[in-house]
């Protein structure tokens, strides 16, 4: 595969804090990768190393064959920082046009970028009057211009309403479809809404998971939850057979390791009329994320 971004064993220390510890993460052309982690997990530091703003203490970073921060690398990268406040006196069009000129992009790209982020109507208004979501979309518009080979988006969906977020991921899909490698950071798995090809999770500067969502779910190997509905007459005997907790005086709930699922279900079916319904829920994306990103979890290797 044509890897646009290569990072190998990147480490970076700030005084006594190890912000990045041997991070290796590649992104191929046309691939959408989400970088997850709590605040302070090292996401922004990694972006800053890739952009060449910070030098890695150790390891190797390469953007389309160029060292980070070099003129050629900067020509290929576009960036949207987490918090950016554009000059209030300028219009949306003037701001996008400013960055387009710095990137030597065509002037025609400005209008089409503003249209793509649904800012065409507001483009000639001063951005001081924009809502938070509009400012975020303006940031995205400046990131689109210049036909970048690698897009780095630091928490791009924070502050967006669900519809804008949906539209945002559609747009990312289109951009990646044209061959741009996209690396975006986010706070939680559920927010990603299954819109990226791969998910990498950073915890205290280390990559603790790197794979598709299905792979992550499999390797987390979290128990499924089974809820058995009975009635007030039989709930006691159901509880004594299955264990777990009683809920609402009529139901019993318990966790079950994935391999044991069929065995448990056959035990439940033997209970006959004492059981009126069964619900099985897989671990949510938030639970999978919590599993990988929490401090005390006993993790398997998901990479």
């Amino acid at each position: 595969m044509n890897m646009v971004l290569l990072t190998q064993n990147v480490s970076r220390r700030f005084k006594d804090i190890e912000a990045l510890k041997g991070v290796s993460l590649d992104v191929a052309a046309g691939e959408k990768v989400a970088l997850l982690g709590h605040n302070g997990a090292g996401k922004t530091t990694l972006f800053r190393v890739i952009l060449g703003f910070l030098r890695a203490d150790d390891g190797h970073v390469c953007i389309n064959g160029q060292p980070p921060g070099s003129r050629l690398a900067r020509r290929d990268v576009s960036y949207l920082p987490e918090a950016v406040a554009f000059p209030k006196m300028l219009t949306g069009r003037e701001i996008v046009s400013f960055y387009a000129k710095l990137k030597n992009a065509d002037a025609d790209e400005v209008g089409s970028a503003l249209e793509k982020v649904d800012l065409a109507e507001a483009a000639d208004r001063r951005c001081g009057g924009y809502s938070k979501g509009m400012r975020q979309r303006l940031g995205l518009a400046q990131a689109i211009v210049g036909n970048p080979k690698l897009m780095l988006l630091d928490e791009p969906t924070s502050g967006l309403d669900p519809i804008s977020r949906q539209r945002f991921y559609e747009l990312i899909g289109e951009i990646a479809g044209r061959g741009t490698a996209v690396l975006l950071s986010s706070h939680g798995l559920s927010e990603l809404e299954l819109k990226t090809d791969r998910v990498a999770i950073l915890r205290k500067g280390e990559v603790v998971a790197n794979g598709s969502l299905a792979e992550l779910q499999r390797s987390a190997n979290l128990p499924i939850r089974i809820r058995v509905r009975s009635n007030s007459d039989h709930v006691e005997s159901v509880h004594s057979r299955l264990g777990g907790e009683r809920v609402n005086g009529e139901s019993v709930e318990f966790d079950c390791p994935r391999p044991d699922k069929m065995d448990r279900l056959s035990v439940i079916s033997q209970l006959g009329k004492a059981v009126s319904d069964v619900d099985i829920s897989s671990p949510s994306l938030d639970e999978v994320y919590r599993y990988f990103s929490s401090d005390d979890a006993d993790r398997g290797d998901a990479t």
Partner: peptide, 11 residues
């Protein structure tokens, strides 16, 4: 304001 990062990320 965070705009210097954006400018310096360009060539």
């Amino acid at each position: 304001r965070g705009t210097l990062q954006l400018t310096l990320a360009t060539p």
